[in-house]
């Protein structure tokens, strides 16, 4: 829990540094904000590790197939990366690039979840054929 307060403090300090540097050279300010963002996320994702392990435990308990959960995890990964990159592009003033990457992330998420959608429809098909 103390990690969160450290993040809050680091965020405030980084914001002040960025304000200070932006007047002189804006590119350094952008790099500093990216560095701060990446550091915070690396820390936060290590805390997500036990959660993912617990989900795997639950999966083993329910004897659920790995293919069911894999698209979920992949979509989360695509979402996280997409969110970060979109934020950076928007900060750099490239709104069009940000929108394109967002669209790209959506398409990739759809592609990643395609096997799951296929499985659901084949299940429907088998139920309807059986009935």
């Amino acid at each position: 829990m103390s990690y969160f307060f450290r993040i809050a403090a680091v965020g405030m300090i980084a914001a002040i540094w960025i304000l200070l540097i932006r007047k002189q050279n804006a590119d350094f300010a952008l790099l500093l904000s990216i560095a701060c963002m990446v550091l915070v996320l690396i820390g936060a994702l290590t805390y997500l590790q036990p959660v993912v392990e617990y989900i795997h435990q639950l999966q083993n308990l329910c004897q659920l197939n790995t293919e069911v959960l894999a698209p979920l995890f992949k979509t989360i990964a695509v979402g996280i990366v997409c969110q970060i990159v979109t934020g950076v592009c928007a900060d750099a003033g490239e709104q069009a690039l940000a929108k394109t990457i967002e669209l790209c992330g959506t398409i990739v998420a759809l592609y990643v979840s395609l096997p799951l959608i296929k499985a659901v429809f084949s299940l429907f098909d088998s139920i309807l054929q059986g009935g």
Partner: peptide, 14 residues
């Protein structure tokens, strides 16, 4: 968390 990186970049910028 590697806070040194932030100070390193800020110092280099200044």
């Amino acid at each position: 968390m590697d806070v040194d990186l932030i100070f390193k970049i800020a110092g280099l910028g200044i």
